[in-house]
Amino acid sequence: MEHLLARHQAELAAQQQQIEVSRPAAAELISECADLARGSDDPGAERLVGIEAIRGRIAELTSRLAREIMTFAPGDAHRTSDLAVAKTVDQPMLERGIRMRTIWLDSIRNGGPTLEYATWLQSLGGQARTVPTLPVRMIIMDRKCALLPVNTVDATAGAVVLHGQGTVAALCALFDTTWETGTPLGTSEPQDARGLTPQETELLRLLGQGLTDQAIAVRLGVSHRTAQRFAASLMEKLGARSRFEAGFKAAARGWLLPEQ
C-alpha cells in the first residue's frame, strides 16, 4: 500500500509540474488574444464583440460539432440567466452524442446554481471535473478551433475564435493535462500524504507567492471572506499563529514546492 501511495503521489506531482510549465504558454496566448482585440489582423483568428455576438457564434459552431467540446469554466457564481441559455445549447449537443467535458473550479462544490447546472450536465452524459484554479475561460470544439475571451475580467466584452493548428494544439494539450489532475464531480476531493486537498495545496502555493486574500479569492473563485477562512484553516493545520509562521512551518515540512 505504501508503494502504491508513493507512486500515485509521484504521478500527481509530475502532472502538477506539467500544469505549471503550461501556465506561461497560456498567459502568452491570452496576451495574443488581447492584442487581437486591439485591432491586430490575424488570418487564424476572428474577433467577436459583445455577448450577443459571442452567443451567436457559439451556437453556430456547436451546431456543427462532430465529436467533442472541451471547456474551462472558471468562476463560481455563474448567473442563472447565463446557465439557462447554456442549457438550450448543451442539451441538443448531448442528445446528438457529442462528448462534453467541462473543468470547473473546486469552489462550485459548495453548492448553488453552478453546481446544479454541472450536475444536470452529468445526468445527460456530460463529464465534469474540478481543479483549484484555471488560467482562463476557454471552449475548444472538435480540437479544431478555440474560443477565448479578450478580457479575462469581463468575459462578455469580446472574444476571439482561434483556428491556427499550432495554437489550438497547445490549448488542447493544456486542457488534457488539467483534466488528468482534476477530481470528478460527485466524488470527494482527495487528500495527499500531507492531508491537504488540491484546493488547499493551491492555496498554500498562492500564499507562498505573497498574494493578498482578495487576489487568492479571485483565483479560487470564492468570496474574500471564504478565502480568509481557507487561510485560517490551513494555518490551523500547520499549528501556526501567523502567516509568516505558517510559511516557515510549511517550508520546514517540505510542503512548499519550488517554482517551475
Rank of each mutant, 00 (worst) to 15 (best):
R143A: 11
L105R: 06
M138I: 05
T119W: 00
I98D: 08
T130F: 05
T130S: 07
R96V: 11
P113S: 01
H78N: 00
L105D: 03
G75C: 00
G111M: 02
K144M: 03
P149Q: 08
A73P: 01
P113Y: 00
W120L: 09
L134M: 06
P74V: 02
I103N: 00
P149L: 04
P132L: 13
D90T: 15
V161M: 11
T102V: 15
G111K: 04
V161W: 07
D90P: 11
G125L: 09
A86C: 04
R109Q: 01
R79K: 06
G126A: 15
R143M: 07
M100V: 09
G97P: 15
G164C: 08
V131E: 01
L148Q: 12
G125C: 07
I140F: 13
A73N: 01
A86G: 02
M93K: 07
Y117G: 07
V89Y: 03
K144V: 05
Q122M: 09
I98C: 06
R109G: 03
Y117Q: 08
D142I: 08
R67F: 09
I108K: 03
G112S: 04
G126Y: 15
L83F: 02
R96P: 10
L94Q: 10
L65C: 15
P74R: 05
R99W: 05
W104F: 03
G75Y: 01
L148R: 12
R143L: 05
A84M: 09
S123G: 12
M141K: 05
F72E: 10
I139L: 13
S81P: 00
S63A: 14
R96I: 10
V153Q: 14
E68T: 06
V150A: 14
P74A: 05
L83K: 04
T152R: 09
L162Y: 11
E95I: 02
M138C: 08
A159L: 12
W104I: 02
V160T: 08
L121H: 03
C145M: 13
T88M: 09
L148V: 15
G158Q: 14
K87V: 07
Q91L: 14
P113M: 02
P132S: 13
P92D: 07
S123R: 11
R109E: 02
P113Q: 04
G97H: 15
T119L: 06
N151C: 13
P132V: 12
V153K: 14
A157V: 15
A73E: 03
S107L: 12
I103C: 02
A159H: 10
A77F: 01
A77G: 01
F72A: 11
T88V: 11
V136Q: 12
P149I: 08
L83M: 06
D142C: 11
R99E: 12
L83R: 01
S107T: 12
L121D: 03
W120H: 11
G158M: 14
I108H: 02
A73R: 01
A157T: 15
